[in-house]
Design a protein around this nucleic acid. Structure first.
Lengths: 233, 233
DNA sequence: CCCTCATGGTGATTGAGATCACACACAGCT
DNA sequence: AGCTGTGTGTGATCTCAATCACCATGAGGG
């Protein structure tokens, strides 16, 4: 749980500019209106229900996107990585932020004000298309999320899906069966919509069946196929 | 359940053009590349997993957007109404359609090819912004969906949410407590992620407690506040 | 007119998982 | 050392809703 009152922007950082494949002229203009900040773990970039200020581009680190109910229960929509954009839909549509964004690790994040985003979209079709592609990625991943959350019967299936999903969208460089998992069981539960205890029990079950093993904070998927066989149900 | 093989486009219709507030020049150009068709109930506009062909603008009628699991269970993402756009994210991002779109009532739907969408977005920043606003609406409503589906504990809360939600996003003209519900209990169940029987029982319970009443296919919400008190949990 | 199929209505049974209630391990403090 | 806090591991219950099973209704169609 984040310590609620955490003043957002801290030490500015040299802009490495993960502006992708935009043309140099546009990148130059963006650099004049963007601002890259560093956030420590737990810092809140924006909160559910706030009026949109602009968009956030993750340059490094991990950012947790979550929504929460009045009774305190929380659902983590996704953990955004380098290259992902946050708050795009709300900024474009002028609707309140739908989720809360919180640094899951120390992050560098570039901010662009709403007015600048809208102005540049009008002027540069290429930039508009780029933004829209970011948004469409968000949309697609959200659809996937809703599908796996609702159409996967058992909690064990959801967990298995999450684990193999993690294996897949990691940099191809690293070892294909080992990964660091910087999430507590509580947070994993919030990702798949189950209680912390259920996550603990399922992980224990997976371990007992030699599907996974743990070495400190590193998770080793020792039998990926067995995990995958839990999917589909 | 839709009769699977249903050839899409049928009788062309005069384009009333729900192109919103776009400038006349752009509307004129759009009219040269768009095509409005009529679809009977049950017709499939596109299916989950297909390569994107373009975007669909609902001119009249209702279109059901759903995803389904391998075991046949189905989740209805939303029922799109006049003015809504379908397939935008997939068309922009060049990813397969995430859902299946099926005419829930006889519909008129305008189609624009992917290549035309992308070309016009590059050329006309205003058009790009318009498209992005459509997409951001989709995104926001999908976030709402995921929130109510996952963060509402009981099935009765989800159903209550659905009903009052329906009351709200209806044309302000009609009677505020009466509405036609063109959905079966099965379909309602697919919207809130519960079984048909549970929907039947809940509706019976609501009726017994005088929260709602039914007059044929028309639903009367006789005690909206009682329904709303079920929300929050 | 009877048949059939889709839908609505209800009971009985069952199970997966939430919840409550602990105990344990391993930090980082002072 | 001792404390405190956060994360994990596990048992015992309990509850909601899925599931199975069946009947009623009503519309359409030969």
């Amino acid at each position: 749980m984040a310590t609620q009152p955490m003043r957002p922007p801290l030490k500015p950082v040299a802009a490495h500019s993960a502006f992708g494949d935009l043309s140099p002229a546009i990148v130059r203009e963006l650099e004049t209106v963007s601002l890259t900040n560093h956030y420590p773990t737990g810092a809140v970039l924006f909160s559910e229900g706030q009026a949109p200020r602009g968009i956030y581009l993750v340059e490094s680190g991990l950012v947790k996107l979550s929504v929460c109910a009045s009774d305190g229960r929380t659902l983590i929509l996704r953990i955004a990585q380098t290259g992902e954009a946050l708050g795009v839909a709300s900024t474009i549509g002028a609707r309140d932020y739908e989720a809360t964004a919180e640094a899951q690790q120390p992050c560098d994040v570039t901010f662009i004000r709403q007015s600048d985003v809208l102005r540049m979209m009008r002027v540069h079709g290429e930039f508009a298309l780029w933004i829209t592609q970011l948004l469409s990625r968000d949309y697609n991943s959200t659809c996937r999320e809703i599908r796996t959350l609702m159409l996967s019967g058992s909690a064990s299936e959801k967990l298995a899906r999450l684990l193999v999903g993690w294996l897949d969208d990691r940099p191809a460089s690293s070892h294909p069966t080992r990964m660091k998992v910087p999430l507590t069981h509580e947070e994993i539960g919030q990702m798949i919509g189950t209680s912390r205890e259920t996550v603990t029990r399922l992980m224990a079950g997976f371990r007992k069946q030699r599907m996974i093993a743990q070495e400190g904070a590193t998770l080793v998927v020792s039998n990926r196929l067995a995990l995958e066989s839990l999917i589909t149900a």
